[in-house]
Design a protein around this nucleic acid. Sequence first.
DNA 1: TCAAAACTAGACACCATTGTCTAAAACGTC
DNA 2: GACGTTTTAGACAATGGTGTCTAGTTTTGA
Lengths: 231, 231
Amino acid sequence: MKDREQSKATGHTQRGQRAKRISILDAAAQVFCREGFSGASIDEIAVEASVSRQTIYNHYREKETLFTAVVEDIMDRANATLFSILSTFPDKPDHLEDDLTAFAIRFTKNCLCNQDGKFLRKLVQSEGERYPHLFATWRQHGPGKIGAALGALFARLSHKGALKIDDFDLAARQFLALITADLQMITLFGGTPTDEELERAARNAVQTFLRAYAGQIGETVSRAPELAIIS
Amino acid sequence: MKDREQSKATGHTQRGQRAKRISILDAAAQVFCREGFSGASIDEIAVEASVSRQTIYNHYREKETLFTAVVEDIMDRANATLFSILSTFPDKPDHLEDDLTAFAIRFTKNCLCNQDGKFLRKLVQSEGERYPHLFATWRQHGPGKIGAALGALFARLSHKGALKIDDFDLAARQFLALITADLQMITLFGGTPTDEELERAARNAVQTFLRAYAGQIGETVSRAPELAIIS
DNA sequence: TCAAAACTAGACACCATTGTCTAAAACGTC
DNA sequence: GACGTTTTAGACAATGGTGTCTAGTTTTGA
């Protein structure tokens, strides 16, 4: 878990109780992700966390408690990073293709390439039905809000004349679908796309997206000065 | 497993050994899909198949053998139905939007809505890394070939002037990504999209796809008569 | 420096599961 | 109807996992 090791390195070695908790959560995430809930054993997690089994039971009463704690923890982190990426969505119509492509790369890189993303994909898929509540709230606070936010961002872009979109939320969903289209087959088998693959996938996606949703940029731009002069 | 019940109903009740094998495979698919490999117990499968545990061990030496047999069985079936759907891909430029939409509905319905599709999504995701060989061959014979075949079909359509496509395989992948865009959130949690949802998702996807890849249909169509008269 | 809190290692009971083995029953075929 | 095959139910050892307990050790913070 990159994020965590960082905070361990920068901060003053998160000593004591708190360090253990984090160490356990990270190890548990790895093992749950690798083995699934029933395949994961507490002993395995304890070893990976360099902690005694009893310590795990002290912090998290039972296996299931630990699991939900891990899932919630990762969901929080994933949402936070995703929203921070959303805030880098381009808002100027110039260089739209390049800006959108760069945004798409940032998005896929953080969504598909890191441990948290992989974990969520696997765990939602394999344990989602067994924990309806847990994943339903995630669905609301995560993908739901992100879809809406991205829709609003496309709306902003559309109002500036850079795009011609009827249904903003739909456009957002299609954008997301397109930028992951070429990467699914890679991530499905646990692989991590290379930077080139990310780049090419994003570029292809954005080109198609823009062809589908391009406003008459030429017209709008060339007519705008006239209108400005008249008014 | 719908397909199987059918063959049981039509055929002469597949008696004896063969009937048991099928019954076991179907039950195992259900349980593996619900519980994952390590969560599934042979006893559970035996009960669901109305068969004694020993019979399972007679047919499939051990749990792992059973698992791979189930996976291979389902992959074969899924590939077969998918290719049969591919053969219904539209080849006339008229009514392209409607024809493509109908095709998309057929595709998603058989890909996302039936048991086999759900099984493959879950199992590839959760056990893919543990059985690299098993799933690598599927990847070749399944998605790989289907992507290529769909690319060729788009090429045919493109050569007839109905579409303007540079990279046919890319267009195929983007088509697939678009038609599943709105359904992912539903299927991810084990749900099955309604017919309305399928219809709307397909229509939205095809509209966007055509906007991105439409040849100058208006031009082509209106100019064609002139050319015909001259020649 | 000292006491409380947290951690460790190991033993433990308990339970579920896998895979084998048996003897009896059901089945299919000639 | 008799014979060989398949299926069944159940007992069985072996294994590995969960969660508890205890007694001893380390860490923390005042």
